[in-house]
């Protein structure tokens, strides 16, 4: 099982494992992985939690997972339309327990850059930009992010621009899971198909790995839930992740 644990499944499953019982959890725009993670958690885990999404859904029951993580399909079966101003205000006043936020670069403190590669005023690459980050990262109780590549250019010693700073709790890549210890990100676990040395080599910042171990493989239930969400492998192919 562990040798053929695809990097796509690794990221979705480990994001889902950050979801906790009875909490309010949110997935946003441009966020297929967290959307799938939240839907997976709903299917696979034997506990209740409130799933809010950027489409305005509150515990929706979408008939399928849409390619756009802000698709109105994510309000199918919702009991309310909890629109953008509402979920931002909820986060601002401390009512969001777990918030998934995208990032292009992440540093060892768990700060993020979603703005630019290179100088902000003369960017080599203009990235999507601020989004939820600068307000949600410092105000949500916990934030988690993900990267589709694990490399020194994604996990950096120094960000090209600090878009957001604050409450980063967890980071998932195709080969590793980091958890914040209050000071810095420390390695929590790594993909059983790679070595700890490889994770160190491919990470731009220094980290503590004293308590880290190979990641627990996906359970039957987790694997089945993901198959149900991506029955034809469209998300997995689009994502094109490699270990």
């Amino acid at each position: 099982m562990t040798d053929d644990w695809s990097p796509f499944s690794y990221v979705v499953t480990n994001l889902a494992r950050f979801v906790r019982p009875h909490e309010v959890t949110f997935s946003g725009v441009n966020s297929s992985f967290p959307m799938l993670a939240c839907l997976l958690a709903k299917k696979a885990y034997p506990f209740d939690f409130t799933y809010l999404n950027v489409a305005g859904g509150v515990d929706p029951e979408p008939p399928y997972a849409p390619l756009s993580s802000s698709d109105p399909v994510l309000t199918h079966g919702t009991r309310s339309i909890f629109a953008n101003e509402d979920f931002y205000d909820l986060c601002a006043r401390g009512g969001m327990d777990l918030c998934f936020l995208g990032a292009a670069q992440i540093d060892g403190y768990g700060q993020t850059n979603v703005s630019c590669i290179g100088d902000w005023h003369h960017p080599k690459v203009r990235l999507p930009g601020g989004g939820g980050a600068a307000v949600m990262l410092p105000t949500a109780r916990r934030c988690c992010t993900w990267r589709t590549e694990h490399s020194p250019r994604a996990l950096v010693e120094k960000l090209d621009f600090v878009t957001a700073s604050g409450g980063m709790h967890g980071v998932v890549t195709p080969i590793a899971v980091f958890v914040h210890d209050g000071e810095r990100l420390r390695l929590d676990s790594w993909h059983p198909a790679v070595t700890l040395e490889q994770v160190v080599e491919r990470t731009g910042f220094a980290f503590d790995a004293a308590t880290a171990a190979p990641t627990e493989p996906p359970t039957e239930v987790e694997a089945a839930a993901l198959r149900e969400l991506d029955p034809d492998g469209v998300f997995e192919r689009d994502a094109g992740l490699v270990l």
């Binding site: 986060c91 601002a92 700060q111 902000w120 601020g130 600068a134 410092p138 600090v162 604050g166």
Partner: peptide, 13 residues
């Protein structure tokens, strides 16, 4: 007023 923003370089920008 807006919550958050602390630590973001967007503020100075």
């Amino acid at each position: 007023p807006i919550a958050g923003v602390h630590g973001s370089e967007l503020a100075a920008l």
